Computed example of a mutant assay.
Amino acid sequence: MALNFPKLHMLFLSLLVIVNPFLFVEPIALEPTTHPFTKTLQTLEGVHKGQTVKGVAELKTYLRKFGYLKNDNNNSPNDHFDEYVESALKNYQTYHNLPITGKVDAITIERMSLPRCGVPDINIITHGSPNGLVILANYSFFPGSPKWDNTKRALTYAYVSSANVALSMDDVRVAVQSAFKSWSQVTDFTFTEIGTESGPVDIVVGFHSGDHGDGYPFDGPGQVLAHAFAPQDGRLHYDAEEQWTTSPTGQNGGLEKNGWFGRRRRRPRKPVSIDLQSVALHEIGHLIGLGHSSVLGSIMFPAYGGVRRDLTQDDVDGIHALYKSTN
């Protein structure tokens, strides 16, 4: 039975936050997506500072969207690869544990081609305002380190969507509940589902397509999988156009060091299904206050690397540091 949620009322937001990952079965590699941006990246291989090549403008948009491009000639949409783009690309490569070349090389194309969370890796500081992520160790927090009040540890959640997906409601509930349970085991938070008819809830989970009223439209299958918002906003949105699954037999993470990024993949194949629970685990981290981590393999790493359903030490250290917890 297809999942059918009531329509989501128009919502407005002040902070973006979203996706990603993770359990191991056998060492397989997640293929890059077939998103149009992947095709653009492949035409840019080898491009570097000083060149003007069609497609660089799209690269700028990507780097700007995820927090790496700060000063690029007043956000110029042109195709010139200048020193700002080179610097942004080096920062991206540094954050993602890639060789720092400042060029659009094959391994950077592979990483950028992975499906990922829609939350920026680094929030841009503008006009002297504290909009940048506060980096502690490898994990990170949102601007101002927002978190739930000390009196808010028993959080409620409900499902409200504006689009259908080919999953049963029971399967969705089990997957999301399992992800909530993982965070409960390392914090003093509890998460209880209630119906919207019971009154206001703390967290709203839903599936949506394209422009769904929060200012951060989804881009269809391939790139951005989901996004969530910092405390105490409480919204977690999945892109309904992705190929979601709750039983990804035989699929696993592929982001470990010495993993698939050492292989040259020239032609992306059909993307595998995306594990709903893995993405929920990542997004819930955002909901309770964590930004992205630069630790390859952590749940809060921004790129989706396959099925990963266990929190890593970096994830646990991050949430404990935010709430000064020793759980």
Results as ranks from 00 to 15, higher is better:
Leu41Ala: 01
Ser178Gln: 15
Gly215Asp: 04
Pro99Cys: 07
Asn258Trp: 11
Val85Asp: 05
His286Gly: 03
His212Leu: 09
Glu242Val: 09
Arg264Asn: 13
Ala303Cys: 11
Arg111Tyr: 06
Asn327Ile: 15
Pro21Phe: 10
Asp202Ala: 00
Asp317Asn: 14
Tyr139Asp: 00
Val176Asp: 01
Asp202Gln: 00
His227Val: 04
Gly220Tyr: 03
Asn327Ser: 13
Asn327Leu: 12
Val176Thr: 11
Ser273Asn: 12
Tyr62Asp: 10
Leu276Ala: 06
Lys147Met: 13
Tyr84Pro: 11
Asn252Tyr: 10
Asn138Glu: 15
Pro32Tyr: 00
Ser113Trp: 02
Leu16His: 11
Ser178Glu: 11
Leu290Gln: 02
Phe5Arg: 07
Ile284Gln: 08
Glu58Ile: 03
Thr40Asn: 15
Ala228Arg: 06
Leu236Ala: 06
Val224His: 00
Asn4Ala: 12
Tyr238Asn: 08
Pro99Gln: 01
Pro120His: 04
Thr61Tyr: 11
Thr156Val: 04
Val17Asp: 12
Pro130His: 10
Phe24Met: 11
His237Thr: 09
Ile274Phe: 06
Glu31Gln: 12
Gln177Tyr: 08
Gly128Asp: 07
Ser298Tyr: 05
Thr156Ile: 02
Lys270Asp: 12
Pro268Asp: 07
Val119Glu: 15
Ser14Gly: 15
Glu26Ala: 14
Asn123Ala: 06
Val174Phe: 01
Trp260Met: 11
Glu58Trp: 01
Ser182His: 05
Pro302Trp: 02
Met169Arg: 13
Gln51Val: 08
Leu290Trp: 02
Leu225Ser: 08
Val204Asn: 04
Gly254Ile: 05
Asp72Lys: 01
Ile135Asn: 05
